[in-house]
Structures are given as structure tokens and as C-alpha cells.
Amino acid sequence: MFSRIGAAQKGLYNHAVMWSFFHKLGSPPWLYDIAGSILRWLLPVTIMALLVGAVWGLLFTSPDFRQGNSYRIIYIHVPSAVVALAGYYVMAIAGAVSLIWRMKMADVAMKAAAPIGAALTFIALFTGALWGKPTWGTWWEWDARITSMLILLFLYLGVVALYEAFDNKEAAGRACAILSLVGMVNIPIIYKSVDWWYSLHQPASIKFSGESAIDSSMLYPLLLMIGAFYALFTCCLLMNMRAELVQRESRTAWVRKLVKQDGAH
């Protein structure tokens, strides 16, 4: 039984034999293990950073002279928005790698990144609405950045929906890779055009306090939180990838061994 399945699986990866690094990256058990060991130290670090950043930002910074305490939501809002955008690029680059080098693991990474990115985008929008109510007196404002985030959410949802629509998951991965690459080319154009559209229709009453005006006592915890969110994204990505790997390779010997080990513990 073992050799049969081995024979069926081997060809997927054996064209990379010569490049041992690529070979390793293309090997699910290796990736599973390495992701596990990265998670083992990254996850505590992430949680620490999140806690420190949150406590620092929420308790030990002075209230804004205009917005009072409500501004403190930026410690969640800004990091999630920044990482949500970066996440799209991670997804698209992973997609490109899987298309060009036919690396299965990049495909797994892309598939894992999409829902995380969508969730972060949603968090950014949601916290933005919460923030907008006390600050601007409205839940929703057709501001350039909000609109862009909304479009980003649609782009993410498109990728997720396309993946789910295919029965053949391999084809689904490649289709999503193309879609996310198209999205990547389009994001700067969309951003610029939305920016420009907003400047044309700019209502006089609302204005962002520019980021340059941010005080350094507020900036450092914000930077820490941005870093922590990047780490959080990476953790979620690795965990998602591990889950996806086990699911995809459920027939192979190494996963069965893994399950057996877990059962023994």
C-alpha cells in the first residue's frame, strides 16, 4: 500500500529533485514540520507583542486632544488595514510562484492567505465604522480609503468564491492565482482612481488628521501593533497551510503516521 501511494505522489514533486531547496519546499511533510517549528516560537511572540502593544496603546498613551480616547481604535484599525493590503500581495505572489514553478506549496499558501486577508479587511472596515461614529458622527463615509478597503474586500471575496466554485481544486488554485495577479495589477490603478475620485468630490466637513501629525508616543505602540499583526498574519497563514496540507495529503503515508502519533499521545 505504501509503495503504491508513494508512486502516485512522487511524480508531483520529483521534477525538483535537483534543486534540493525547492525540493524541500515542495515536500509537504517537510513544510508541515518546519511550519510547526516556526509556529512554536512565533505564536508566543505574536501573542506577547499583541498584548504589549494593546496594553501600551490602550492604557499608557495620552488621549488625543481632539478625539479623546476614541482614537485608540487605530491600534487595531491601522494594523489590520496595512496587513490586509500586504496580504493581497502575499497571496498574488504565492499565486505567481505556483503558476510559474508549479510549486504546490505556493498554491497552498495562496489558498490559505485569502480568507485571512478577507477577515483582516473586514476588521479594518468594521473598526473604521466604529471609529467613524464618534469622530465624524456617521458609521459610513464614502472616503477614499474606506472605499478602497471595501473594494479590496470584494477582491478577496472574489478569490475565495472562485476557489470554492471549482470542483477540481488544482484548477481552482491556478484560476485564483490568475485572478489575484490581475487584482494585483489593478489594485494600484483602483487606489489611484478612487483617491482621485475622492479629491474631486471631497466634502469640506471631514478631514483626516494626517499621519505625519501623529505623536511619537502614539506612534511606537502603533508600529509595534503593525509588527504584531504581520506576525499574526504569518501565524494564521502557517496554521491554515498546515490544515490544508493535512487535508490534501490525507491519503499519504506521512499524514497517516501523524494521525497515529497523535492518537498515541
Partner: peptide
């Protein structure tokens, strides 16, 4: 429409 409409925005 879900895939394409966002790209139509510009």
C-alpha cells in the same frame, strides 16, 4: 460579476 465588477471601477 463578483470577480469582475471591482476591476471595472477605474
Amino acid at each position: 460579476s463578483l470577480l469582475i465588477l471591482p476591476l471595472y471601477i477605474p
